[in-house]
Structure formats: C-alpha cells, structure tokens
Write a protein that binds this DNA or RNA. Structure first.
Lengths: 115, 115
DNA sequence: TTAATATGCAACCAGGAGGTTGCCTAAGAT
DNA sequence: ATCTTAGGCAACCTCCTGGTTGCATATTAA
C-alpha cells in the first residue's frame, strides 16, 4: 500500500470513528429510525414512547448532531431534528472499502496457495 | 409500518449497536485496517508501531471479538486474530435499509407537496 | 395577563471505557 | 536447563457517558 493511501485511510478513521460511535447505542439507533420517516421531529415528539427523560433524549440528539448524522433547526419554541444522509453514505463507502480489501487479500492468499 | 417490521428493526438495533460501538474508536479501526491484509496477526504484531501498550491493544481486540468482528485462534504461545467479514456485511445492509427508508420518505413528501 | 408547553442549562451521580503497571504462566529458542 | 518471548490476569486510575433532577427561559394558547 502506498503512503498516500495509508494517510487517506488514517484520515478516514479519524473522520469515521465518531460516526460509528454515535451509532453505537440502541437509543440513538431508535432515534435514527424515527427520523427515517423523513419529516423533522421535535424533542418532545422524539421523547414520546421512550422510558427516558426528555433531557436524556436531548443529549443523545446532541451526540448525533456532533457526529453530523442529524441537523437541528429552531422553529418557534421547538427544536426540529432531521436526518442528514451524507455521513451514512460515507461510512457505507468505508465498509465497502474494507470488504473489498478483505476480498482482494483472500484472493491473493488463494492464488499463493494454489500457485 | 407493520408490527413485524418494527420488531425486526428493534431486534436489528440490539444486534447492530454493539458492532457500531466496537467500530467507534480510532485504535480499533486501525486494527481492523491491519487485519484487512487477510493473514491472521498475533497481539505482539498488532501492537508493533502503536504507542499503546500490548494490554491496551489486547483490550481493544477483546472488544472487537465480543462484537464478532474478529475471531481468535490460539497457535502455540500466540493468539492469532483474523477479521470476520459477516458483521460488516450486516451493518452495511442496515445502512442501506436506512438510506432506502429515507429516500422513500422523501419521495412520499415530494409527491404530497406536488399532488 | 396567565397558564401551559417546549426547551435550555447546570449540577450531580454511578458505572463503564481506555489506559497503565506489575506479576505470573506457557511455549520456543539456545 | 535456562533465557526469552507471547500472552493472561488483576488492580488501579482518570475521564467520559448515560441518566437523573431542579430550575430558568421563551413561545403559544386561553
């Protein structure tokens, strides 16, 4: 692997780790699921049906926001949150890259064994 | 959305959250990157070039192992670790599902506005 | 104006995560 | 048999995380 490629991968790690971390929590995954509906939701609305406090949900939303997975826009007295699909696409590409590397490595090992 | 579908999604969250969490750390992503090479690596080998202790790396490997991202096999006095691509595929599918839901929701909103 | 709703802010707490050190055991190498 | 290397185990520390409660503030509704 080239130096450039290695640096790119290291940069990718720094960028992707927070996104993975933000998704690494059941509560936050359920928030993401609710926001998949397409229409922005207020904090109160997102808290409905949860056993957690509004503040707990707020914190989780902040985590998602810091990771860029969600955007907040203030409307009147409420904070509306909506999904941002871009980071999802990013880490999907990253996972595809990992799979690809893995497959190529296996192919090399196979040809080495056979050759 | 149907009840079945909702239950399936909740089960998916329970299954996927730990995987995302395991990937939500730069050190562990770099370990994954090294293991993408295809050949199993010992703990000492994976520690080489890191500023962390062998024990720290061991802990990270245990996290990856608990999440199913990595498999350990003992050979002589060393523990060899290899990637398991299956969980990667799983969360990739999950991300694709999220994107899909999002796109469909957007399409519905669009037709609602236009109609 | 007054009441109700939606949110923000801060303090606080328990537990877990990431990391270190020290010591012990097992397996190769000489 | 002895030395060296790879790894496991446990204690310990610090900081972050997930969660709570209490109170303050800004809108909206009556």
């Amino acid at each position: 692997m080239s130096h450039k490629s290695r640096n790119r991968m290291a940069a990718g790690r720094r960028a992707h780790a927070p996104v993975f971390a933000a998704l690494g929590d059941e509560t936050r995954l359920s928030l993401v699921a609710k926001l998949c509906g397409g229409r922005p939701c207020s904090i109160s609305r997102l808290t409905e049906g949860s056993r957690l406090t509004r503040q707990a949900i707020t914190k989780h939303l902040c985590v998602l926001e810091r990771a860029g997975l969600v955007r907040r826009v203030r409307r009147g007295r409420e904070s509306l949150f909506a999904l941002d699909p871009e980071p999802f696409e990013e880490i999907k590409k990253y996972l595809e890259f990992v799979s690809e590397q893995w497959d190529q490595a296996l192919a090399r090992l196979k040809s080495f064994v056979e050759g």
